[in-house]
Amino acid sequence: MTEKTYNVLFICTQNSARSILAEALLNHFGGGRFRGHSAGSFPSGTVNPLALATLERLHVPATGARSKNWDEFAQAGAPEMDFVFTVCDNAAGEVCPVWAGQPMSAHWGVPDPSAAEGTPEAVDKVFRDTALILKRRIELLLALPLEKLDSLAIKRQVQDIGRA
């Protein structure tokens, strides 16, 4: 029996930092059991270089990282999502497309590291801290016994992770 691969979409308005970090972290730590994707409602079209540098320092590959519109995942032939997580407050308040398969959704908001000001070291620390918050939430998701929980329990658990 093959184990299910769960598709997870991380959404942030610009899809340039937080959602990119989450996508790469999930793909790295998900062990093939999870497949991360990211998108934005108004994508910037570029990935923040500090997000890529942060992933590199954490030894997390960001192969193929690109800023893309969430419409890509609402089209026919797109991967069917099992989970959709907003990682910024703006995206959480927006009207999302209708996702095939009715995925579980939750808000996992974190402050925008791209808005950080200060010395280069201070800004790097904000990016690292953001990545570590997302990594911890992803570790909690990965630890859930999804195959043993009913949908209401899963929904409650993934919402609680976003509050942690």
Rank of each mutant, 00 (worst) to 15 (best):
N7D: 11
V8P: 15
V8S: 11
L9D: 13
L9N: 12
F10R: 10
F10C: 11
C12E: 06
T13C: 00
T13P: 01
N15P: 08
A17D: 09
R18F: 02
I20E: 15
L21R: 04
L21H: 01
L21D: 06
L25P: 13
L26E: 10
F29G: 07
G31D: 04
R33M: 09
R33A: 12
F34P: 10
R35H: 15
A39S: 06
G40L: 04
F42R: 12
F42K: 09
P43Y: 02
P43I: 02
S44Q: 13
S44K: 15
S44E: 13
S44A: 14
T46V: 02
T46P: 03
V47A: 10
N48L: 03
L50N: 14
T54M: 05
E56M: 00
L58A: 07
H59A: 13
P61E: 05
A62N: 08
A62H: 13
G64I: 03
A65K: 08
R66H: 06
R66P: 09
R66Y: 01
K68A: 07
N69H: 12
W70Y: 01
W70T: 03
D71P: 02
Q75H: 09
Q75G: 07
G77V: 01
G77I: 01
M81C: 05
V84F: 00
T86Q: 10
T86P: 14
N90F: 05
V95M: 11
V95T: 11
A100Y: 09
G101E: 04
P103V: 05
S105C: 09
G109C: 07
P111N: 11
P111F: 03
P113D: 00
A116S: 01
V123E: 10
D124Q: 15
K125I: 08
V126Q: 06
T130N: 05
A131F: 06
L132S: 08
I133W: 10
R137Y: 02
I138R: 08
E139P: 00
L141K: 06
L141M: 06
A143V: 06
A143F: 03
L144N: 15
E147G: 03
K148R: 15
L152I: 08
A153T: 12
I154V: 15
K155T: 12
V158E: 14
D160L: 14
D160V: 07
D160W: 07
G162Y: 02
R163I: 03
A164K: 12
